[in-house]
Design a protein around this nucleic acid. Structure first.
Length: 287
DNA sequence: AAGAGGCCCTGATAGC
DNA sequence: TGCTATCAGGGCCTCT
């Protein structure tokens, strides 16, 4: 699922559920995620309180009561589910598996609190959990990442100087987390459509006005997507099993062959591959 | 240093 | 019905 808006939607709903709660028990059913879950992962988390649920870019950050952190990245197919305690023996009770919103397979990690259980599901296992021991290491962990689109450092000066002498196309840079972090393949196409910029345009040939529009529209698209509860294509749902709504706002993504939605534009939406990713755009209004 | 390409993995869908 | 091929929202690594 997860670009910045989807991760933010998960953060918001998770925050309300587990804040100030103590981890009672952790079960790792499959250690082989993007990075192997270490053997001491469970014992490290157990008896710690969650003091804050934060997010940077596409990463969830659980703040733990001993001033360490648990990072969660959902990869391509990771989802978080919450199931509630019904009766006693919660820690050993498996009846919640009948929950209609919980997938039957690929429930790799379970984190139990007093009255509820967080379950991490990830068919493709591109996601990961990581313990970070202190604030310095957290900073270091994110040091290679560029600013989020919302960051005031993501501005005209930063973007234009970053693009000097660069020959890759703009779509590639919107996906490049070192340049700007949080944008993924869906929103990159949508941002460029709204900005009337062709995704295959070389960044050193972009005008200053193009750069300004891309900055403004990155914020705009991500904010609207968060408001709408994220995008539910294929199967993204928030932790309560509710679908997002932003997919209804897609102007180009997965609209190959359909007519351009811009008023008076006669264009037909095209799909082309760059850096192994589908890219959607209107070849008439995106110059 | 920058850019192209490949790989990790499972599941859904299309085509034969 | 069942095979095979292709593709999927991410990130990291290697090679040139």
């Amino acid at each position: 699922m997860p670009e910045l808006p989807e991760v933010e939607v998960v953060r918001q709903s998770l925050d309300k559920k587990i804040i100030q709660k103590e981890v009672k028990k952790v079960i790792v059913r499959n250690r082989n995620l993007r990075f192997k879950i270490p053997l001491n992962f469970s014992s490290f988390l157990e008896k710690k309180k969650i003091t804050k649920v934060d997010r940077f870019s596409k990463y969830l950050i659980l703040y733990l009561s001993n001033n360490s952190y648990c990072l969660i990245h959902l990869g391509m197919s990771g989802t978080i589910h919450i199931v509630y305690k019904s009766k006693k023996n919660f820690l050993t009770n498996t009846s919640f598996y009948n929950s209609p919103t919980l997938p039957k397979k690929h429930n790799h990690i379970e984190i139990s609190f007093e009255n509820l259980r967080l379950i991490y599901n990830d068919p493709r296992r591109f996601g990961f959990f990581q313990i970070i021991n202190n604030q310095d290491l957290l900073k270091k962990r994110f040091s290679h990442l560029g600013p989020e689109p919302f960051d005031e450092n993501f501005n005209k000066e930063y973007v234009t100087s970053y693009f000097e002498g660069k020959k890759k196309n703009i779509k590639n840079y919107l996906l490049d987390q070192n340049f700007v972090s949080g944008i993924g393949n869906i929103y990159a196409s949508e941002i460029l459509f709204l900005s009337k910029v062709n995704p295959f345009k070389r960044v050193d040939l972009l005008s200053i006005l193009d750069c300004k529009k891309i900055i403004k529209n990155s914020r705009k698209i991500l904010n609207i997507a968060i408001e709408k509860g994220g995008s539910s294509i294929r199967d993204f749902k928030n932790i309560s099993g509710k679908k997002g709504n932003f997919q209804k706002n897609f102007k180009v993504y997965e609209r190959e062959g359909l007519s351009c939605r811009r008023l008076k534009c006669q264009g037909i939406i095209q799909k082309k591959i760059t850096s192994n990713r589908s890219t959607f755009f209107c070849n008439i209004c995106q110059k």
